[in-house]
Amino acid sequence: MNDSDIQIAIKDIIAQIAPDEDLSQLDPAVRLREQIELDSMDFLDIVMELRKLYGVQVPEADYKELATLDGCVNYLRPKLAGKTLHCAARV
């Protein structure tokens, strides 16, 4: 598992929540909410999907860590260590 796998796994989750968004042009350093339409309900779903798919727990105080794709990767790297990622977006 490397960082790009994690990024793909996250994009997979976002694609499921917001199937009509174009995720191919996302800049990983820029806040997601500035690039695509994600409201707080969508954000809750990212957290819920991480929990459902990978058993990862994100306390509300840490939501801010998930603001960008890069932030997601950094925050989730230790939590996802050793887990099998679902990366449909790659195939």
Partner: peptide, 18 residues
């Protein structure tokens, strides 16, 4: 229905251990 479930059931679940 969505809002109440999110706020009062799921948000609490997101906080607790999976």
């Amino acid at each position: 229905g969505i809002g109440i479930v999110n706020r009062h059931v799921l948000a609490a679940a997101a906080e607790s251990a999976p």
